[in-house]
């Protein structure tokens, strides 16, 4: 029975991957419906009841569309771009506990793994922007690289203070540590939460930080030249990355799968924990969408100012303060 843990891992991996992939189309639909409601419109309501099959129709459309490779494009990188964008985001989900003990891999360096994996997405975007042989794509790719690298620093620094508080880089341990409501990191590290959440928007190229693909300036940014399922992959990657980031926010700051009090042991507790986690995840995703249809886009210099001159110093100050507080706390105890 040496293979059974592996089998279990595979089943968990497939389940969670499938769940995330199923979530994406409905996230797209939710995005469209919510944006419509915010703008006093109706949104997609033709395909299926209440437009629920619209994502399916979109996927079918994308699959059957012609894939165009621009003349004099770098064919290898051009095909590699969408894959490199999608795969890391999907892999990152492996380390996130979606319920009590429900995790593909419980690794001791979970936080680092997720941060590393999501950072890899920048390669996909830069490759796509470079390989398209298009000035808009190239500018989009460049902006994206600069933006992700800038905000990665603020994000990492924010995380350090969280890690200092929890004393662990394992996501399962961080989750366990937030069982009680008052122990949620959002209360213990509110400034880190704001910095992390802001940086998460930037990492995901979401409004108000969607400069890499801002339609009014760069046509479509790095994916201007992409069509068919290659474009679909970028699209998918964007939403998967959004889910991963939301899951990270939930896990790190919003008490993970904990409803705020101790759950009963056994299967029931696990099921409730998954439900709680999902609820929190959806709430964060909704906030993502809500922000997108509320705030206008930052100017590029504003973006860089915010990242380097505000978030990074603030996060550093936060580390210092946290360090002092943690030291004093430990000494007191």
């Amino acid at each position: 029975m040496t293979w059974s843990p592996i089998l279990l891992d595979v089943i968990r991996a497939v389940l969670i991957f499938a769940a995330v992939m199923t979530l994406v189309p409905f996230l797209v639909l939710a995005e469209r419906r919510i944006s419509a409601w915010i703008q006093n419109r109706v949104g997609p309501n033709r395909v299926g009841p209440m437009g629920t099959l619209q994502p399916l129709a979109d996927v079918i459309k994308l699959v059957f569309k012609e894939e165009i490779v621009p003349a004099r494009a770098d064919r290898v990188l051009y095909s590699l771009g969408p894959l490199l964008s999608f795969a890391p985001a999907a892999i990152a989900f492996a380390a996130i506990p979606v319920g009590r003990g429900l995790q593909v891999v419980d690794m001791s360096v979970g936080v680092l793994f997720v941060i590393t994996a999501t950072s890899l997405a920048v390669y996909g975007i830069s490759f796509g922007g470079w390989a398209s042989n298009n000035k808009f794509s190239l500018l989009g790719g460049l902006r994206s690289s600069a933006q992700i690298i800038s905000y990665e620093i603020a994000m990492g620094l924010a995380l350090i203070s969280v890690i200092m508080t929890t004393g662990s880089v394992s996501l399962s341990q961080i989750s366990e540590g937030q069982t009680s409501f008052l122990c949620w990191n959002i209360f213990r590290q509110p400034i880190a939460f704001v910095i992390f959440f802001t940086a998460a928007f930037a990492e995901n190229n979401r409004l108000p930080f969607d400069l890499p693909e801002c339609e009014s300036e760069l046509v479509g940014g790095y994916h201007t030249e992409y069509s068919g399922m290659k474009f679909g992959m970028y699209f998918l990657a964007e939403y998967v990355a959004m889910i991963v980031m939301s899951a990270m926010v939930v896990t790190l700051f919003l008490g993970a799968w904990s409803p705020g009090f101790a759950l009963p042991e056994g299967l029931l507790g696990t099921v409730i924990s998954v439900g709680v986690f999902s609820f929190k995840l959806f709430a964060v995703l909704f906030f993502y969408i809500w922000v997108r249809w509320t705030l206008p886009r930052f100017r590029y210099d504003q973006l860089m100012h915010l990242g380097w001159k505000s978030l990074v110093p603030l996060a550093m100050a936060n580390i210092v303060v946290t360090g002092i507080v943690v030291t004093i706390w430990d000494a007191v105890q």
Binding site: W37, R41, W290, T294
Partner: peptide
Amino acid sequence: AVFKGLFNTFLHLVKAKGHKTFTIQ
């Protein structure tokens, strides 16, 4: 300002304060 904006869009979202859908089917 951000939260004020979010509140405003939320009013649209839930169709409070007399907001209504304008789309003609």
